[in-house]
Amino acid sequence: MARIEIDEARCKGCGRCVVHCPKGLIEFSTELNERGYRYVIYEGDVEACTGCTMCAVVCPDQGVEVWNHRDKQTFVNTSGLTERMTHYCPGCTHGVIHRITAEVLEELGLLGRTVGIAPVGCSVLAYEYFNIDMFEAAHGRAPAVATGAKRARPECIVFTYQGDGDLASIGGNEILHAANRGEKITVIFINNAIYGMTGGQMAPTTLPGQRTTTSPLGRDVEDTGHPLRVAELLATLATPAYIARGSAHDAKHSITVKKMIKRAFEHQRDGTCFSFVEILSTCPTNWGLSPAESEQWVADEMIPYFPLGVLKEPAAQPAATPQEAQP
């Protein structure tokens, strides 16, 4: 029979796996783990487990591994992440997107030549979590740092990981011009419609009417403009690019996000074009919602304003041999 193993110590008790297990095999424990979270346990009619991996796919904290009915491990924590616990709040999907990004780099065999660039914002400490060479950049400047690194060492795979304040507000100029120059870098853009690290202020992507600490009556678009659709904006540029938007709010969409991120790094590996994946992400803490409610809010409020899909991709692919730049 299929089975899962939960690492209680890593669990922050967000309950995403509880919600997403199709067989209802995961529950909250009555105990707290050493970090003070009411962790989850795998119990009940565990023989019903199909090894679908949904629990692992939605876990933001690398807390679940899965074996199939032949006892083959089908969900293994990626070596692209360190074992360090993230500082992200319970239910925040940053952890999911970290995992997906690291998995893609591992699966493509690129971890050993990748240089990542962490932003300023909630993911400022991403250099602690990605198990690769990393920069920590100044607020908004990651695409410029990536440009310098990639131009200097074209054989490296260079990506930035940026939130909406970092990329769309203070770093608006750097992302626009890196995209317009067609830098052969990959940008992972996390859009959760709010400033997380500073405690819930209005972001350029905050939705009309959304309450934040700096738009306490709800975002007034007459006063502060409309939310920026960055993927659409970049897709208007004449420069060839891979531009996509996905969402990490549930397992199914997370699987699509992985395909997009994989495509993005393939484009960089092959030297095709600039690649950009925007990912809608949850912020339960600053939205004032539970993890489950946050997922629903993404589906109900964010996706209608930020439609998902591949917005742009170069029509013709280059020849089968990847362009391996010489060191």
Partner: peptide, 13 residues
């Protein structure tokens, strides 16, 4: 602003 950050990236590699 971008120039000096490109320098940061290039120097770092």
């Amino acid at each position: 602003v971008a120039s000096i950050n490109m320098i940061y990236g290039a120097a770092g590699v």
